[in-house]
């Protein structure tokens, strides 16, 4: 469990990225922080592994204040996946995956053997192990990034817009993979995105943020869709544009689901 307690972050240039932020992130679930750019979602994520330290307030992991933990050690037990993979270009795929265990003192041979297994886990062919990141496609690099995030078997996996830079088809594939991995491994995933559809797809808990890290609404996707807290949320999830208000039309004996504009979006299964 991760707990934010009235966390405020003001950067040296005076910008207040986050103000009085409170949130409980349940264990073994995916929590998605979603909002437009500048809402402080990445700042919030980076405060969990102390890439950024809060100006005031505290962040607790399983009841332990992270301020009392050494940042480098803390980071090694939290997985981190970022946009554009952030892979080390001078290390082969397998060594990228083995990075954190090796930093933790696991013998190289053992770390590499485990890294090969992780390539299987994230659906990559083992033949890629000896390649350099630039020899891989964007989607493959992102999978390596996920494997690297999982390598030290952390309880927590932080994902900072990990699929923002890949094309829609690969993106959909990676999203499904993330759901499968999370369900299989039972990690606490904190996921940052600006895409509400991605948030609803992945999140058990979705946190909709406004400027300054103010929470507009927290809930399950269904709760948010059923009762948007205010106009901002309604507009953000697209309820006001009619694309979330669906109705059924009967076409040739089949129930077709159409949105408010009459655009068909799917077929109702009997």
């Amino acid at each position: 469990m991760i707990e934010f307690r009235s966390v405020t972050k003001q950067f040296p240039d005076g910008t207040v990225a986050v103000e009085g932020f409170d949130l409980v992130i349940p264990p073994r679930k995916t929590t998605v922080l979603v909002g437009s750019s500048g809402c402080g979602k990445t700042t919030l994520l980076r405060m969990i592994n102390r890439m950024i330290d809060p100006t005031s307030g505290s962040i607790l992991i399983d009841g332990e204040d992270t301020a009392s933990l050494a940042p480098v050690k803390l980071r090694r037990r939290i997985g981190y996946v970022m946009q554009n993979s952030g892979l080390l270009p001078h290390r082969k795929v397998i060594d990228n995956v083995a990075t954190v265990p090796v930093l933790n003192g696991v013998p190289k041979k053992k770390a590499r053997a485990h890294a090969l297994e992780l390539l299987d886990t994230v659906g990559l062919d083992r033949s890629l192990a000896g390649k350099y990141p630039r020899q891989l496609s964007g989607g493959q690099q992102q999978r390596v990034g996920v494997a690297r995030g999982l390598a030290a078997d952390p309880n927590i996996l932080l994902m900072d817009e990990p699929f923002g830079a890949v094309d829609p088809i690969v993106r959909a594939e990676l999203q499904q993979e993330t759901i499968r991995l999370q369900a299989g491994l039972g990690k606490t995933v904190v996921f940052v995105t600006h895409d509400i559809d991605e948030a609803f797809l992945l999140g058990h808990q979705v946190v909709i943020l406004q400027k300054g890290g103010h929470i507009a609404q927290v809930g399950t996707p269904a709760e948010i869709l059923a009762r948007p807290a205010d106009d901002f949320v309604a507009s953000f999830v697209g309820a006001d544009k009619g694309k979330r208000k669906l109705r059924i039309e009967r076409v040739d004996g089949t129930d077709v689901v159409v949105d408010e504009n009459g655009t068909p979006t799917g077929v109702l299964q009997p």
Partner: peptide, 27 residues
């Protein structure tokens, strides 16, 4: 800089990051 940030996020200390990431990449 993104790579350096990623290296820090992985848990490289400042010293390790310089020798194992920054210097080789400046190679």
């Amino acid at each position: 800089p993104d790579i350096l940030q990623a290296a820090s996020a992985m848990g490289y200390s400042g010293w390790q990051r310089f020798w194992r990431v920054e210097l080789p990449l400046a190679g």
